[in-house]
């Protein structure tokens, strides 16, 4: 048993914690989320590079909402999302404990939002080199090429909404997609409706996206839709100096304003 599994076992045996949300070994070398309620199952837990899913999405789910005090094993994406969810009052201080990992692999216990916020401040915020290169590739295209690129990508979308389901920030009980009076987003998955859906999803994540890229990872068609939310996240930083997932008391970039906000396109 490694440190994490021992720790998990102790926590469950102590009776103070009723559920551990973490990662277990999945198929094809991938990790998948696991929900552990019994101490003897603690040996299922793993934590390595394959654990890149953002599992903050489960924290506020109805199914585990009423479980006794929870523990979540968090990678850096999950940590940032927890901070952003805390800022939006979707998770509550003291409801759960976070097990994070230091650079040397040591387990860090984070009990309060303040501790989580402090720990998150030590993490890297921004795109990885590969992600930045993908953004640059698209931004360097001509307008026509960019349209052709996205038209092709959007035409493949089957509107399964896995991007929405996987995103910790997509927690609205009724999404605009489900509203049919008026029908904002068409039901069949044609390119026009798909484009509107992806524009809407990105806009609703403006100033809230922590650039974990989970939407793109969840997409069964492997569409690079995470780039759309990266775009709004980068713009929020550039225009409003707002980086989601850094502060537990920050206001949303689009919910506040400054009279001196500067643009150059309004006549």
């Amino acid at each position: 048993m490694n440190n994490l599994q021992q720790k998990a076992q102790q926590l469950l045996e102590s009776g103070n914690y009723g559920l551990i949300v973490g990662y277990e070994k999945g198929t094809s070398g991938k990790a998948r989320p696991v929900f552990i309620r019994k101490a003897e199952h603690a040996s299922k837990l793993i934590f390595d590079e394959s654990c890149d899913q953002n599992i903050a999405v489960y924290l506020y789910r109805q199914e585990i909402k009423h479980d006794k005090k929870k523990v979540i094993v968090a990678n850096h994406h999950t940590l940032k999302s927890i901070v952003e969810l805390a800022a939006e009052n979707q998770v509550f201080d003291g409801d759960f404990m976070v097990l994070a990992f230091a650079g040397n692999g040591d387990i860090i216990e984070l009990n309060t939002f303040e501790e989580i916020e402090k720990h998150v401040a030590t993490l890297y915020h921004g795109l990885t080199e590969a992600e930045a290169a993908m953004m640059k590739k698209i931004e360097d295209m001509s307008l026509e090429d960019r349209w052709a690129f996205w038209e092709n990508e959007f035409s493949k979308c089957i509107k399964c909404y896995a991007c929405r389901a996987s995103c910790p920030m997509c927690y609205c009980p009724t999404c605009t997609v489900e509203i049919n009076q008026p029908q904002w987003i068409s039901v069949p998955s044609h390119t026009l409706g798909n484009l509107e859906w992806h524009v809407m999803r990105a806009m609703h994540l403006a100033g809230r996206c922590v650039t974990c890229g989970q939407c793109g990872k969840a997409c069964p068609l492997e569409l690079p839709i995470q780039l759309l939310t990266y775009k709004v996240a980068l713009d929020s930083k550039q225009f409003f100096d707002s980086v989601a997932g850094t502060s537990i008391c920050a206001d949303n970039a689009l919910a506040i304003f400054k009279p001196e906000d500067h643009e150059n396109f309004i006549r």
């Binding site: 806009m203 100033g207 713009d235 396109f265």
Partner: peptide, 13 residues
């Protein structure tokens, strides 16, 4: 603020 973000997003697609 909304337009600043929206306009750039449209340009991006």
């Amino acid at each position: 603020r909304r337009w600043m973000i929206f306009r750039n997003l449209l340009d991006f697609i």
